[in-house]
């Protein structure tokens, strides 16, 4: 049922942990070459790359701050040299600095917007030239959004605004790249069991708040990411696909 991704080259930003790690493993399981981007967690990223290789893909860990234009230019040059181009881009790297607005410091606002939104710009801007005219079929991009972009909840103004920006970026770029046959979509997870969301989820009883009565797993999100990258979604572009266990 699943399409193979052999001969395809994928970059997953923030690939050392959480949803990013699950995306690397899912693409690796389908045979893809996966570049596991990380900013600080070198050992974890190298472990993920090794796991990708064990699963039947080829994994490589590469450092780079997604919001640093210079870093992304260097990463793009490296990918072009080693792999001659890029088929799949998963813009996953993100941070949270939750705080009520009255307590929210400028640096917490700036850092969340810098990584979560400028990072999507800077990475996509650098990688796009590598994604044109790919030999094994059109390239595709999936951005990680969040339920926070469409559902209000307190303490997340910076994170919600950054993910709202990701949604808007996704839709606009989808229209821009459609004539080039590059599809651009986003996945908006609900409550997923990751280290990053641990604190947020302490206050939530899934049996009451989530129609599916449980939190999501990183693997479930990764499957939807892989599906949107694959040919099974060949006419899907500009979509924000919610994976929330039924939360509307």
């Amino acid at each position: 049922m699943e399409t193979t991704m052999k001969d395809r080259v994928a970059l997953v930003t923030g690939g050392s942990r959480g949803i990013g790690r699950a995306c690397c493993l899912e693409l690796g399981r389908r045979g893809a070459t996966v570049i596991v981007n990380y900013n600080a967690q070198r050992a974890q990223a190298e472990a993920v790359a090794a796991e990708v290789s064990e699963l039947g893909g080829r994994g490589f860990a590469h450092q780079g701050d997604v919001a640093a234009v210079k870093d992304m230019a260097a990463l793009a040059a490296r990918i072009e040299k080693d792999f001659d181009g890029l088929d799949y881009l998963v813009n996953n790297a993100g941070v949270i600095r939750d705080q009520l607005l009255l307590e929210l410091e400028e640096e917490d606002w700036d850092e969340v917007l810098r990584v979560n939104l400028k990072g999507v710009y800077a990475c996509t801007r650098a990688m796009l030239p590598l994604m044109l005219g790919r030999p094994s079929g059109p390239a595709a991009i999936v951005n990680l959004s969040s339920i926070a972009s469409s559902v209000g909840s307190k303490g997340h103004v910076n994170y919600a605004a950054s993910k709202g920006g990701v949604d808007a970026f996704t839709k606009a770029l989808a229209i821009e790249l459609a004539p080039k046959k590059i599809r651009v979509n986003a996945v908006a997870p609900g409550y997923v069991e990751t280290e990053m969301a641990k604190e947020v989820m302490q206050d939530i009883d899934p049996r009451q708040k989530i129609p599916l009565r449980r939190f999501g797993s990183t693997q479930e999100i990764a499957r939807v990411v892989a599906f949107l990258l694959s040919d099974a979604a060949s006419y899907v572009t500009g979509e924000i696909v919610r994976v929330t266990g039924g939360i509307q």
């Binding site: 989808a174 229209i175 459609a178 599916l212 999501g216 479930e220 499957r223 939807v224 979604a233 006419y235 899907v236 572009t237 500009g238 979509e239 696909v241 919610r242 994976v243 929330t244 266990g245 039924g246």
Partner: peptide, 10 residues
């Protein structure tokens, strides 16, 4: 695990 998806070429 998805509930809604459009396939409309954008």
């Amino acid at each position: 695990p998805i509930r809604r998806i459009a396939a409309d070429g954008g």
